[in-house]
């Protein structure tokens, strides 16, 4: 009798653990599905526009209700840094000072646009709190969908001809700066640049 109870007890624990694992896998899948259908925050799907391709063209309104054209040839000869962010993303916030200094240092050739989607009120509070009034703040889910924006923060560098120079997830100030490095050196993506850097370091070591 006690042998049977013992076997059933151990077996039940195993089942509980396996079911816990299965449920966790299921909720993660559900989370990924939500992210896929809601643009800002989706997983990188790899099917978005790549470096060297023409940037998808959009005309979207910002928080101040001004219209901005993203992509396409520009008459003012400025490149565009499209920075996708969200008030719920702490990593984005750590990058804001770097973004501001880049916008200041590179203003001769670079036009910085912030982009997000969701409830307007939250974004207005966010802009006020982090003093982002100097940047046009685009609010459009089509934009995020068009550029297949994966995890945030995501940056896209578009040249004056409307060609994407580099694109990718940016997690740190170094990432953000390497976006420009990638542009100057003509490397396709940020990740490719980072990989090249890493292998070079390994060679040295």
């Amino acid at each position: 009798m006690s042998g049977a109870l013992l076997a059933s007890n151990v077996l039940l624990w195993i089942l509980v653990l396996v079911m816990g694992g299965v449920i966790l896998a299921l909720v993660r899948q559900i989370g990924v599905l939500y992210e896929r259908v809601a643009p800002a925050g989706a997983l990188v799907v790899g099917s978005g526009p790549k470096a060297g391709e023409a940037a998808p063209e959009f005309t979207v309104g910002d928080l101040a209700n001004d219209e901005h054209r993203v992509g396409g040839k520009r008459s003012d000869d400025l490149s565009t840094l499209l920075f996708f962010l969200s008030p719920t993303c702490p990593v984005c916030k750590t990058l804001l000072p770097a973004l501001k200094s880049i916008a200041r240092e590179e203003r001769k050739w670079l036009n910085v646009l912030l982009a997000s989607d969701g409830a307007r009120k939250e974004h207005e509070a966010f802009v006020a709190e982090y003093r982002l009034q100097q940047f046009p703040y685009l609010l459009s889910s089509e934009l995020g969908l068009g550029y297949r924006v994966g995890r945030l923060p995501h940056a896209v560098l578009i040249d004056p001809e409307g060609i994407i120079r580099s694109t990718g997830l940016v997690n740190s100030r170094e990432h953000l700066e390497s976006l420009f490095e990638a542009n100057e050196r003509g490397v396709a993506t940020l990740q490719e640049y980072m990989a090249a850097e890493q292998s070079r370091e390994e060679e040295v070591a």
């Binding site: 653990l17 816990g20 966790l24 909720v27 993660r28 559900i30 989370g31 992210e35």
Partner: peptide, 18 residues
């Protein structure tokens, strides 16, 4: 099991706004 369920509930709560 508690760790798994904690992760599950975390994920469910995170999914809520989405």
């Amino acid at each position: 099991a508690a760790a798994l369920l904690y992760a599950v509930s975390n994920r469910l709560i995170a999914n809520g706004p989405d």
